[in-house]
Amino acid sequence: MVLEAKEVQFSYSDGTTALKEINLHIPRGHFCALLGPNGVGKTTFFKVLINLLKPSQGEVRLDGQPVSNYSRAELYRRIGFVFQDPNDQLFAPTVGEDVAFGPTNLKFPPAEIAARVQTALELVGIPQLINKPIHYLSYGQKKRASIAGVLAMRPQIMILDEPTAGLDPLGVREIMNLLVRLNKQEGITILMATHDVDLVPIYANHIFILNEGKIVLDGSPKEVFSQKQLIRSAHLRLPRVAHLGEILFNKDNLSIDSLPLTIGEARRMVVSQVKGTGDSHG
């Protein structure tokens, strides 16, 4: 299952151009992050990717076929989309009924639907909430329920718009761990939008930076965050630890060959410096 965007352009009906020219290829099985400041068009781009909006130029292809060629059922059983605000997505009165919505539309037999609902709720860790009305859920639980609603369709690619927005630090960690598990154990390709640069290198292994309607950077965290100027011109910043590494390098003459992106990398770097081995770790 390969998803790619070819020279995608998008303008709103009032004439403002949101996406100028987007080329991107979502590698299969990867955990990808689309980084960009607020208002840069991440949500618009995602809606184009999943064929909710039609690009004014270019096209999006899934396994070589334009997404517009797929029927709704065919497309959305392959690509799942989780909206930023779970209240937009959870429209049914109870968790179970909401999660069942997708599989019901895919016309599975009742037993299969029931099994899928159960499995999806277990994957996100809220099987006990199956009969709960949505308005009794906490924000984090709503987030999980909305992910389960998409998982029940068993997509191979899952696209999430700001999945960590509005969550507390523990909630962020739980959701990210859940996504990693879905990626590693279930083999689901993940593409998530975020502007949280500290979070990205910990979980993602492929990063796209979106700025002014274009993908300005595309690669592994290491490659992407080595382009400090481009990162900053895209109204983003380096992860805090990388920034610390940069200061140590510039002001304190610490010898490092690449910036640390996670606490673990920073620790290894500092320990090796302190012990004086000079063997800085990349």
């Binding site: 809606k47 909710l52 709704r72 059922a73 959305y76 909206f83 937009d88 429209f91 997708g102 998409v150």
Partner: peptide, 12 residues
């Protein structure tokens, strides 16, 4: 947006 979300789950 709810309609969009429903469509993304093959609303018919």
């Amino acid at each position: 947006s709810t309609f969009d979300a429903m469509q993304a789950r093959a609303y018919n």
